[in-house]
Design a binder for these strands. Structure first.
Lengths: 237, 237
DNA sequence: CGGATGTCGAGAATGTTATTCTCGCACCGG
DNA sequence: CCGGTGCGAGAATAACATTCTCGACATCCG
């Protein structure tokens, strides 16, 4: 691509320093701009979703809102799907942060887990708290089917966090024998999220909806083994 | 609409018997035809799904395959969505039947539950056994978000079945105190299905995938009271 | 028989999106 | 000033779902 005529043959292997620097300079600027744009797209999408309380957004909407162009959009994302995936990962990271923050005051690992399950459950609830996170939990199921690998990556931080707790619980002898902490963490995490989701809007008909506490009791017994007792601060509400 | 002139006023309230019969006769024929057509659409869709192993079907495909017309399709279904819903309900009914059949030889309610969880788990697995049922389990998540009420209806037969088992388990003192059978049933059902789904294709990377037995142990501990032990026929595999 | 009415296949028309493509402008180093 | 390059505006394309129109064929009623 470059003017081979003026450059020594060695160039093929290693560019001269000045060129590298020059390229670097022009490259960095481009990178910064790119990052800015990506962020703008992300923010725009987030805002739209928050406004309409649903994932039904059009690439066009996002583009308009972010005051950029379709062209630019497809230059930065391979498609709508990647945008959503980015938001999804974001949301899960934030969620993990939130849980970490909410549990760091607590010493008892089982209580930490209880808090984690509560938060996870609430954040995954489709109805309530339609502000930010739940939407991505709406999105998760589709993803789970179409792009399981990406989902696993996105779940990683949360899974890691919960695994830590579970490991400490295991050390405290709170874990059913024969159950590896990571497995337990995975199951608890999934269960909390999905039980929450499966409640749907149905608050009207029968008393179906499963409560946070029920879900927690279920998870707790699930990993602690039958007969265990919920940590000291059990919410008997 | 009818010729009011020749008919007594009373007609407005109650049609004469002969007319009712006539209407009935012509109506029945129509109904039969309609049912036939619906079945044809359903079969065609099922076949296509089985063939491509995915839910990505086009209304057009279904229509072509069933040797009918678009017009006819929209005359019998309010839209693609309703078709999928019908298939979904079907699949869940079959699933419930299957489970019922597989458990009727078993007396111990806990063992019945174990079998049920195993079957549910396997049927919900996205990978394996891509023949019939799993596809609808793929479909479920979307539905759960968009039409929770319908999902509840579709789940009803399965839920009922599992609730029966759970009730018997409770009578046998196998259920954690304070846990109503129906709630337990709902949670176990959801957990079995979702844990299975969340495994994704990832069989390659880390050892993530949760096994049937792990899921069962988790569920069992989740609902069973203190000191309970998995039913006699525990598969220690 | 002959027209009215209803059913239905064939396929065109419409509407919504995502995604791609084409232009043309503005800016930048030489 | 010139050839590029980055990018906005928006037209073009492609899939689909859903609706609409037409015309053939049947069935019923007088």
């Amino acid at each position: 691509m470059a003017q081979k005529t003026e450059l020594p043959v060695s160039t093929t292997k290693e560019e001269p320093a000045w060129k590298q620097r020059a390229v670097e300079r022009s490259t960095r600027a481009a990178k910064i701009r790119a990052e800015q744009r990506v962020v703008q797209f992300l923010d725009a999408a987030q805002a739209i979703i928050a406004e309409k309380g649903s994932l039904d957004l059009t690439v066009q909407e996002v583009v308009d809102r972010s005051r950029q162009s379709l062209r630019s959009f497809y230059q930065h994302f391979s498609g709508k799907h990647e945008l959503l995936l980015a938001l999804f990962e974001n949301a899960l990271n934030e969620s993990a942060e939130e849980i970490r923050a909410a549990t760091e005051a607590e010493h008892d690992p089982v209580n930490q887990l209880r808090i984690a399950v509560h938060l996870l459950f609430e954040q995954s609830h489709t109805d309530q708290a339609r502000q930010r996170r739940p939407l991505f939990t709406d999105f998760a199921p589709q993803l789970l089917v179409s792009h399981p690998a990406e989902v696993r990556v996105a779940h990683a931080p949360l899974l890691t966090l919960i695994t830590e707790m579970m490991t400490r619980a295991a050390e405290a002898g709170q874990l059913r024998t024969g159950l590896r902490p990571r497995r337990a963490a995975a199951m608890v995490m999934q269960t909390a999220m999905f039980l929450s989701q499966s409640n749907g809007v149905a608050a009207s008909e029968n008393a179906h909806p499963i409560t946070v506490d029920e879900a927690w009791e279920f998870c707790f017994s699930g990993f602690a083994g039958p007969g265990a007792v919920t940590g000291s601060a059990t919410s008997q509400a």
